[in-house]
Write a protein that binds this DNA or RNA. Structure first.
Length: 298
DNA sequence: GTTGAGCGTT
């Protein structure tokens, strides 16, 4: 049978405190935390290796290292002890996120000669970088190539390079592109485009460009024709666009309201401008339907 | 047994 109490201290040099164990010899983390608020575990110095060892913790229950807890002094772990590790995790996820923006995707290879095989493709594309996958699309019955295929690279840099140029494969020029299925959601780019509401008819694209230039580089100004009292302004930097959202700005003496531009084609009235019965009935129909607009750049 | 802008049977 185990001891009734184990010795726990804030630090190896501190005075230990006795913490009650359970009947089965385990110690509840909650028992430790009752005396050491915020505790998230225990560790101890292994007498043989002189290294610190963590105490097994399963669902709030601390388990003795050996058959019993022995005469050791256990040291409390606090989340702050893991700060360095947390930083490492943060750094790792930051890298992951960064990689997320540069995730490779399958590329469609258009214009392949009928005779080109997957081995041919692999041999060719490997000259650019490591290849994960190649496909040649074939007719199910005849096995004849449909003249296109897919390729996936390990490195995003390779993908970029391959997309940028044409490819002479088995005597034909081929193109590698992002497939339609992947073209949109690749980069969940924060919107660089703002919606400028309450525009007046006398505002020209040039004037809007001139005005918004003060905030950052303007890459596009769009004013719907006929006049609809709003405009879109696109900046080179999404942070500029985001910073302006919610603002009321004075242009040519009138107050315009800045908000986020909705994704293009997300507006059903844009898709069906002359829907019979008017906008309301269309919107209602749409709400009841399961259809989701594909995501797209805004 | 053909074809030549496109978009991926499993």
């Amino acid at each position: 049978m185990s001891e009734l109490y184990i010795r726990v201290a804030e630090d190896e040099s501190e005075e230990p405190m006795e913490i009650p164990s359970e009947d089965d010899g385990t110690v509840l983390l909650s028992s430790v935390a009752a005396q050491f608020p915020g505790a998230c575990g225990l560790r101890y110095r292994n007498p043989e290796s002189q290294c610190m060892r963590g105490v097994r913790l399963v669902e709030g229950v601390l388990h003795a290292p050996e058959s019993d807890w022995g005469n050791l002094v256990y040291v409390v772990n606090y989340p702050k002890d893991n700060k360095r590790k947390m930083d490492e995790i943060d750094a790792a996820s930051a890298v992951k996120i960064k990689r997320g923006f540069q995730k490779t995707s399958d590329l469609i290879v258009l214009g392949l000669p009928w005779k080109t095989t997957e081995q041919d493709l692999k041999d060719y594309f490997t000259t650019f970088g490591e290849v994960i996958m190649v496909q040649v699309k074939r007719d199910a019955k005849t096995g004849n190539s449909k003249g296109f295929g897919f390729v996936r690279f390990t490195e995003y840099e390779t993908q970029t390079k391959v997309i940028a140029q044409r490819h002479m494969i088995d005597g034909r020029w081929c193109d590698c592109k992002l497939p339609n299925s992947k073209a949109c959601p690749d980069e969940p780019m924060r919107s660089r485009k703002i919606f400028v509401g309450r525009c007046t008819e006398d505002m020209t694209t040039d004037e809007l460009r001139q005005y918004f230039m003060q905030y950052g580089e303007v890459t596009d100004v769009f004013i719907p024709k006929p006049f609809r009292a709003f405009a879109f302004v696109t900046f080179a930097d999404d942070q500029v666009a985001q910073a302006l959202c919610g603002e009321d700005l004075i242009i040519k003496g009138v107050s315009v309201h800045i908000s986020n531009a909705e994704p293009k084609h997300n507006n059903i009235h844009q898709l069906f401008p002359n829907f019979p019965g008017g906008s309301a009935s269309l919107a209602a129909m749409f709400d009841r339907s399961q259809y989701q607009f594909p995501s797209s750049h805004v």
